[in-house]
Computed example of a mutant assay.
Amino acid sequence: MIRVLVVDDEALVRSGLRMILEAAGDMVVVGEARDGDEAVAATTRLRPQVVLMDVRMPGTDGLAAAARVLTAPEAPKLIMLTTFDLDEYVHEALRLGAVGFLLKDTPPRELAAAVRTVATGQAMLSPTVIKRLITSFADRAPSRAESARNRLASLTAREEDVIRVLARGLSNAEIGRELGLAEATVKAHVSRLLAKLGVANRVQAAILVHDADLG
């Protein structure tokens, strides 16, 4: 069973998320939290595999809590929840190490699928989410774009091919089909390029591609 912690300041939202997740049959909500401080304490106490965290909460918000949760030993996988299509906090949360974000009106089946995806160690970054991030941060500072391009310059030509496709939200199998590579080969390329770039996950790698305006 996948252990999940639900964090939202609205009791009705927490109850709804619990019902959706536990109805999936392969996950259990081990706890709930109303704000960032409670989320940090609950993560330490309950050791969930996945945390669903609201971005905007009174007191300690989701971004401040994410910074603390993701630097803890044996940190859980973190998915940010938001009611906003374009939320300035989401970009920073992904930089901190969150593996994706979902809108609160995400269909139940997609919500459960996202939790399963991140629980296996993969990032949850759909093409729709990427499009929103690109639109939201289209006015990237030139210095940030130049820095991103300099970091990507360390990649081989094949690794650059892989990361460009990865940045569109494709899985290893989909990348392999598009580039004519075995899935195991893609996995090896992804592991190497993440290490080269010094990023924690595929989401951060995708953001780097978009900062460099290569996506």
Rank of each mutant, 00 (worst) to 15 (best):
Arg14Gly: 05
Thr44Arg: 15
Leu81Glu: 03
Ala157Ile: 02
Leu63Pro: 03
Val69Leu: 05
Leu194Thr: 06
Arg14Asp: 05
Ala167Met: 04
Arg3Ile: 00
Ala112Ser: 14
Glu38Ala: 15
Phe84Leu: 11
Arg158Ser: 09
Glu92Asp: 15
Leu12Lys: 04
Asp61His: 04
Ala67Thr: 12
Gly100Ile: 05
Thr60Phe: 02
Thr185Glu: 14
Asp61Ile: 11
Ala188His: 11
Ala64Ile: 01
Leu5Trp: 07
Glu22Ile: 00
Ala145Thr: 14
Leu17Arg: 07
Ala114Asn: 08
Ala64Gln: 14
Arg116Asn: 08
Thr117His: 04
Arg109Glu: 06
Arg68Lys: 15
Leu94Ala: 11
Thr135Trp: 08
Gly25Asp: 03
Glu159Val: 01
Ile2Ser: 04
Val199Thr: 09
Met57Ala: 07
Glu159Arg: 08
Ser191Ala: 15
Val129Pro: 00
Leu179Asn: 10
Leu194Asn: 09
His91Trp: 14
Met1Cys: 04
Val13Tyr: 02
Gly36His: 09
His210Tyr: 09
Gly16Lys: 02
Leu193Arg: 07
Ala173Val: 15
Glu110His: 13
Val118Thr: 10
Leu133Asn: 06
Val50Thr: 03
Pro142Gln: 04
Val55Asp: 02
Ala98Thr: 12
Leu181His: 07
Lys131Arg: 15
Ile207Asn: 04
Ile20Trp: 01
